[in-house]
Design a protein around this nucleic acid. Structure first.
Lengths: 343, 343
DNA sequence: ACTGAATAGGCGAACGTTCGCCCGAACGTT
DNA sequence: AACGTTCGGGCGAACGTTCGCCTATTCAGT
């Protein structure tokens, strides 16, 4: 370990007190231009860099943002994590912050990790994602009055800063796209009712159908765990419906179920995109290379990460937030699974 | 912000000096059992937690591990990142460390980020992934003699601790599997020669064929950028070869190229797994749901993350490393793309 | 009763900053 | 000539720890 360069060394070289150097570096000094130049010169020559920990101790802030997320199922890793993290710590770096990542625990230990990081003064604030109804992390942070920004909404009665994707708007785009192509019998592969994100997306489905004056049959809504097998099985059942009830299009709330649906359609000898239109959600990687490529909905994740961080930084710096609640619209990516080979 | 509980408050409550409390907490005190009990009691009652920054300042170590990785191409996000990060910070937490993530920059700025983190004393060591030949990050860290562990090998003349996947061994497994099923003409979708990982995997291809006494034709090796289109185009060309030169199996160095190959085979009216066997590499998510499911090679990424962290922690704690160079074998996942529907 | 070690715990200092207060000199104002 | 102001910069203190050294008491061994 090379010996560190400290303020005192810079001060000695510049012929001033070390506190004055500190002030110059932080731009809150009243010094003559010559002295200031001498100090900067010394800083440069010695390659001085402020000791972040010492600075934090004195300033009582770590300039670290805590982030934790639940592990994904092994066969379905989170594809947007990469981009999301990159967007966040790029924005953070510009503001002089870094991201501290810590493991996600379940049950009692979950809150314990947050408490630990707060009480040991390791982080100045948190980013919370995968937010559920009545999420205990949010409850805890609100009670502690500790700064955070959530990616996702929660209990509507709680007031906290968040950024979220407007899943309903995304689903409206999907359904409208299918309606335009003449579909009237549109089935939905949905999640259990407890899923906040799922309900939000499904709302869009109902909204769009309602606007078109269509009343979906109960049989057209299948709820399951969002897996391949569920999409596959549910679709087989739909294909067995009498011709005038059988859906001509299937919207899935995520891509994996959509892929299961594709498999089912193809195994029955039908053509995806021609005989049955299928759409996914999330624009999972590789779905563009399926046969046929899958129509899906993509979240502007880079923007989301940047906004979350800039909101949190504003909070940490005591600046007022222009918007406490941000909703961003996802983008519909139209591919052959909903249009047939002609596009 | 609630007022912090400090050592002095605990000391006051326990009726000892605050330095004694510190010693008890760090287990390096000689105190009577009663006093110790009193101190712990006070700690518990007040909910004392050591101030991490103050501790770091004094101990001259941050207990933070720096990690940065290059952003993935937007259409091909890194699927193992999630698991890799989870495995690392789970291991880190157990050892009392956390992960500090920072952006990856290109050119001059890349090293600058590392220098900044070192000189501002923010991290105690680094984890470096996506290692290339003569990687400047490794050169820099070795010169600075700053602790780090790499995920991946680099210049063979450099001596540094690393964990890497034995790509050659993985490819040997793939090729042996195909040989067992009677294939003799096996083509390879490879990366450019500059790719360290690509060369490593391709070595395994040659090794396995050589052991079987097979001399691959030059025409069976196609080198490209690892994209869908490249796999697709190269495969079309192979299918145009005369019957006695035409490959009956295609091994791809990653899954995306394999998917391109599958598309080409299917468009020619041939059956993947029956007429032409195809294998991928990396076991990208969803490839198990392709039609047919893709045979691929999976890295034990959880173990890798855990080992990397435990090596780095050992380095940071001044313990000797049992192994400076760890090579782990990937696992062959056999699916229908190389065996046909019968399995 | 005297010595020497072990035991229990106190105390000063230091880690590298930032912050607020102070003070001398120079300057302009009445 | 006495006074307030501004400018330029010094100085002590504090942030919450850990570390090494010191000391007072106890106790066993001669």
């Amino acid at each position: 370990m090379p010996r560190r360069v400290t303020l005192k060394q810079v001060a000695a070289r510049a012929g001033v007190s070390y506190q004055t150097v500190s002030k110059v570096i932080n731009g809150k000094a009243q010094v003559s231009p010559e002295t200031e130049a001498r100090i900067w010169e010394a800083v440069r020559e010695l390659g001085y860099r402020p000791h972040y920990i010492a600075r934090s101790l004195r300033a009582q802030r770590s300039r670290l943002i805590g982030y934790s997320w639940p592990p994904s199922p092994p066969d379905q890793p989170n594809p947007i994590l990469d981009l999301f993290l990159q967007s966040m710590f790029t924005a953070a770096e510009e503001a002089g912050y870094y991201l501290l990542c810590f493991p996600h625990h379940y049950g009692e230990r979950q809150i314990e990790s947050y408490r630990e990081l707060i009480e040991s003064a390791r982080v100045d604030g948190f980013i919370v994602s995968s937010v559920e109804f009545d999420d205990p992390r949010l409850a805890f942070l609100m009670e502690k009055d500790y700064p955070f920004v959530a990616f996702g909404r929660s209990n509507p009665d709680w007031d906290f800063p968040y950024v979220d994707v407007d899943g309903a708007a995304g689903m409206v785009k999907v359904v409208n796209h299918l309606l335009e192509r003449g579909h009237r019998r549109i089935a939905a592969l949905a999640w259990p009712e407890a899923s906040r994100v799922g309900q939000n997306r499904l709302d869009g489905y109902f909204t769009a159908l309602q606007r078109a004056g269509i009343m979906p049959l109960d049989a057209w809504i299948a709820r399951g765990e969002g897996r391949f097998d569920f999409g596959y099985q549910a679709t087989l059942q739909w294909l067995d419906l009498p011709p005038d009830e059988r859906p001509t299009a299937i919207v899935a709330l995520n891509d994996v179920m959509a892929i299961g649906a594709m498999r089912a359609v193809q195994e029955r000898g039908l053509r995806v995109g021609v005989d049955v239109a299928i759409t996914g959600f999330d624009d999972y990687p590789l779905v563009q290379y399926l046969t046929p490529p899958l129509t899906s909905v993509r979240q502007p994740i880079w923007d989301i990460g940047q906004r979350i961080v800039s909101m949190l930084v504003a909070l940490l710096e005591g600046q007022p937030l222009q918007e406490r609640h941000v909703l961003v619209e996802p983008e519909l990516i139209i591919r052959a699974s909903s249009t047939g080979p002609a596009g």
